[in-house]
Design a protein around this nucleic acid. Structure first.
Length: 117
DNA sequence: GTGATGACGCAGT
DNA sequence: GACTGCGCCATCA
């Protein structure tokens, strides 16, 4: 692999997040034993070129804030994608974040990318 | 080879 | 209770 498996780990876990659910950088970092949530954001930033295959919009910080929206094509794209999946987003924040929170490994599933148009 | 940076999180004040 | 600063680890310049 030309790129470190590190990216693939983040890529893998991120793809496990079911539509309509969200996870956090810290949760992914903890699950992958990365030791730092910044690593997750950094990895996603490097993989954002594949944003069509990586639901990076489902990854938010620990308070449910869309801190990475500015990294998308448009600052509103992340919010629109979440709302399209049924996630209510207000003021760049996920509403009922605690209820929609999905913990990596809780219901881990094989990689199954299903992109919705 | 060194310093700075990065979509965060926690501890300390 | 709220704010600030530091640390995690890897890549780029």
């Amino acid at each position: 692999m030309t790129e470190t498996n590190y990216f693939e780990k983040v890529y893998y876990v991120t793809c496990q997040i079911p539509p309509g659910r969200v996870s956090t950088y810290g949760a992914i970092a903890d699950y992958l034993a990365l030791g730092s949530a910044r690593m997750v954001g950094w990895a996603l930033n490097n993989c954002n070129i594949n944003s069509f295959t990586i639901p990076a919009h489902r990854v938010v910080n620990r308070i449910g804030e869309l801190t990475g929206r500015n990294n998308f094509s448009t600052p509103t794209l992340m919010e629109e994608l979440l709302q399209n999946e049924g996630v209510e987003v207000v003021d760049s924040r996920v509403v009922h974040f605690e209820e929609l929170f999905w913990h990596p490994g809780d219901h881990i599933q094989p990689i199954e990318i299903d992109i919705k148009e």
